[in-house]
Write a protein that binds this DNA or RNA. Structure first.
Lengths: 257, 257
DNA sequence: CGGTAGTTTGATGGACCTCAATCGTAGTGG
DNA sequence: CCACTACGATTGAGGTCCATCAAACTACCG
């Protein structure tokens, strides 16, 4: 169920060597006004209120290569992150070096929310491919929220949705058998890509079988077998880097609780 | 894994009969200034700021008997709820009438947070024993938050902690074997009772084995067996209505990932 | 004091994990 | 450009933990 972390298993206390932790990152100014995702990640602007909110941040965009960390467990929290491109995973690494994927983040989604309470990140956030995030300094966000009721209620909704989403994850991974979990996972990903204007039947799978398995609480062999079976039955077309859903309706029906 | 709901399995669409849904409830004014939990559920008042926040609500306390619902799936969201006494469960009921416990709520904890985003409750909240909640009208809370930065940051922390907690649940229920799940569950409950000034070694178990099992994704027989074994080994003392932890340290060690 | 619900305990089977081997693919350096 | 390597994916065989089925026991409530 647990999978060995593929990166060298250094002791947790020494997992952040002296090298700059984000050496490969390149920060540069970001502009929300030209971003394809602006209608997704921030409230639509019924009043000029929200536009002001958007303009008020001095956000930056940070590019990350495959395997690069946005943050690591234990680091102080000071920013939220919005996926602009690529896919990220949130993972917790146990003392024994086993890693458990907590969540995947696709474009338009905000992560790092769980660190607000503690002021400290409780997990690693890792890019699974060539990716980019918008950096949203929390202090600026808070300052802006106090001036913008629209933004305030938006943030409450985002946080609340985070709770609801995790409950859905619990539901999915505890209630049903392995096959339904995999189908439910694909169905969920499909919806999330559709929400940002991507085709819902072609899922770019940036994560490995092992990572999917960890997320779903299965072994990677089981995931592989289930995908293989589904491909043979014509439900899916499985390629190394992407999964095509041949019959989305059937998939969703099969994933029903 | 799924357990039949014990209440009569009416079709989901008809689950809210014409009778007033909370007929057995008694609402009455509540006063935070005399509540034992005031230091738990609201920010400590470093400035007079927070005191104002507390006084500004016209909250009510609602008493509920065993099995009574605070709200049910599908109902419109308009208030948050803080447990004042007793224990509550959040459950989702599937079409087939199976129920899955999403969370337990003990005194001092706020629930209903997941409904902010959708404006609608996605699960039932049920009292497990003679219980009472503080009703916190969301509109008043929002109004108050815009005037109180302390309250605002408190609410963000509470919401964030809700996300973090759910992640912990996922961790617990997916990573480890049945025994660790049960131990982890007891250990978690112990901490939560300790946080509100209750003895950490004596857990009042208002929930049934079946409900614990549903929460942990196990069968109730397995939960029973594990508790029995732990009692025989001297780790716990199991009574029908309470579990006494004989060796808290050993329990926490055994629950470690 | 009967009836219902909860708990406990045993027996059995099955879903999925583990171990192991093979194959495919991507990245690397000569 | 191509071997070489490493990692991921796939497939098979065997074992195990836990769900399921079944039944006895206990507690609670009218």
């Amino acid at each position: 169920m647990l999978t060995k972390a593929s990166r060298p298993a250094a002791p947790a206390s020494a997992r952040h060597p002296t090298r700059p932790p984000h050496a490969e990152d390149g920060d540069r100014p970001a502009s929300c006004s030209t971003c394809d995702l602006r209608t997704v990640c921030w409230p639509r602007d019924p009043a000029s209120d929200a536009r002001i909110a958007l303009a008020a941040f001095s956000r930056t965009e940070r590019k990350l290569g495959r395997g690069a960390a946005v943050y690591r467990e234990g680091e102080a929290f000071d920013s939220l992150f919005m996926v602009r491109q690529g896919v990220f995973k949130s993972v917790r690494v146990s003392r024994s070096g086993d890693e458990k994927v907590i969540a995947f983040h696709v474009p338009g989604e905000i992560f790092g929310l769980d660190a607000i309470g503690e002021g400290r990140h409780m997990e690693d956030a890792i890019a699974l491919e060539e990716s980019a995030v918008c950096v949203i300094p929390y202090a600026s966000l808070v300052a802006e929220i106090t001036r913008s009721p629209v933004l305030q209620s938006h943030m409450f909704r985002v946080l609340s949705a985070g709770i609801a989403r995790n409950q859905g994850v619990v539901l999915m991974t505890e209630m049903v058998d392995a096959e339904r979990r995999v189908y439910g996972f694909l169905s969920d990903l499909s919806c999330r890509y559709e929400a940002i204007g991507q085709p819902p039947d072609r899922i770019p799978v940036g994560m490995t079988r092992r990572e999917i398995a960890s997320y779903l609480g299965l072994s990677h062999e089981t995931v592989s077998r289930i995908l293989g079976r589904a491909a043979r039955s014509g439900l899916l077309a499985v390629a190394p880097r992407a999964i095509e859903i041949r019959d989305l309706e059937a998939l969703k029906r099969a994933a029903e609780i």
